[in-house]
Amino acid sequence: MASPDLIMYDEEFQLIKEIISRLRVDANAKIVFLVDKNGQQIAANGDLESVDTTSLASLTAGNVAATDGLARLIGEKEFSILFHEGEKDNIHISIVGQRVILVVIFDDRSSLGLVRLRVRKASMELEKVFQDLLKKVEVEKSNLASGFESPFAEITDEDIDNLFSE
């Protein structure tokens, strides 16, 4: 496989939720969420009722992927920050640890300067959590090799057929 599966455990999930919740308050933002580069939403915080976060996640990842493509075309490694300015709401997108995307949606109660400042600090914290998470996944994998059973090891054809029986 090209890239290892992303696996999330409870401990890191709580840490991540804490960091983005704090970021939302510190940056005076409406919504903060975290997406994997492939478009899977990892965590979100804020006024989530007002938006379709699944669509937001997939479009953000598409946006970042297209921008990455543009960067490479002109000889840049990546554009690490994207900013979309609207009439009322703005979106600030940044890449954390080359793997995940941090999205902050804010209006005129905040400012681009404040968001950038707070995002920088939160990014460093998030990067550390993801590094630890990757290490943990490696350890779990070696446990797996020494006999630890994955919950999916025993998926049966019947389990899968049941998913489609309506």
Partner: peptide, 11 residues
Amino acid sequence: MTFINYAAREI
């Protein structure tokens, strides 16, 4: 790349 979330129990 599958995303397995043990915390939210989602694949």
